[in-house]
């Protein structure tokens, strides 16, 4: 279904987006299987309506977000972002979304809230990939509060002007374009403000390979492969990977004074 009233954003890239087919048939969404084509094949059984997201933790007004209400109550923006996967491929994706800050602020995070933790649905009947323990379910991700509140960070609810396909993380997913794709958690059912850095799935699985920050960084290699270059899906050659996935001007200040080799 088409989404109404989507406005363009000055934060979009003018690069050519990947095709709808590329974006919806080449996915990492292990809840539906570890093959790239598994999510497109098996995500159809995920029931996305109704969908409630619990918001709690260090905030004055904990509560619940209804996905349909979230879409109805906010101005939807098209954000055409680069997405860089930790596996050294990339795409350009025309998301439709809402700035995460606009969603979180009404819950009034307290002064002690320093991080935001996210969780994906855990339900092996709808998500057959969860029957095998390739990751410690539910999928967990987290951001520092200032990263979560950054204008580039959105909750995506659509793609190409339409409702988000299940394999891309329907009904609501995170998109943090300067971080590797695995940070952009899909099908969110819980958001929690925390004082401590929350545990995150890939970091729990392989701490030496996936850090909490996971900022796109061509100078810090994954232990098993180089991050200096990437293949843009649809292209034959490789292109150089850009620091912070090309969003350095907007986000580098978030990390000033930090050693990005240790905080990878």
């Amino acid at each position: 279904a088409a989404l109404a009233g989507v406005v363009e954003s000055p934060l979009s890239t003018d690069e050519d987006p990947n095709s709808f087919r590329q974006i919806t048939t080449y996915n990492n969404f292990y809840e539906f299987g570890t093959g790239k084509e598994d999510p497109a094949r098996f995500a159809g059984r995920l029931e996305t309506s109704p969908w409630a997201i619990t918001v709690d933790g260090a905030c004055a007004k904990p509560g619940t977000l209804d996905a349909a209400a979230l879409i109805a109550d906010h101005r939807l923006e098209e954000r055409i972002y680069r997405l860089r996967c930790v596996e050294a491929w990339s795409m350009v994706i025309p998301w439709v979304g809402i700035p995460l800050a606009a969603v979180l602020t009404p819950f009034e995070p307290t002064g002690s809230a320093r991080y935001v933790a996210f969780e994906t649905l855990e339900d092996p009947t709808q998500m057959p990939g969860q029957r095998s323990r390739v990751l410690d379910w539910p999928y967990r991700e987290g951001l520092r509060l200032d990263e979560a509140m950054h204008p580039l960070t959105i909750l995506a609810v659509g793609l190409y002007g339409r409702v988000l396909p299940n394999q891309n993380g329907a009904p609501v997913r995170l998109v943090v374009p300067w971080k590797y794709g695995f940070k952009s958690i899909k099908s969110i059912v819980r958001i929690r403000f925390t004082e401590e850095q929350p545990p995150t799935s890939w970091n729990m699985a392989q701490p030496s390979e996936y850090g909490f920050y996971a900022n796109v960084n061509p100078t810090v290699d994954h232990p098993r492969w180089s991050q200096a270059r990437e293949r843009r899906i649809g292209e034959w050659g490789r292109r150089d990977t850009l620091m912070f996935n090309g969003y350095g001007e907007q986000v580098a200040s978030l990390y000033s004074g930090m050693d990005l080799t240790t905080h990878f």
Binding site: R224, W225, S226, R229, R231, W236, R238
Partner: peptide, 18 residues
């Protein structure tokens, strides 16, 4: 095809990627 005969990548891979 994959690394496009990119010398530095090849050297890097052969010396650092188990």
């Amino acid at each position: 095809l994959d690394i496009g005969l990119h010398g530095p990548t090849l050297v890097d891979d052969l010396t650092q990627r188990p």
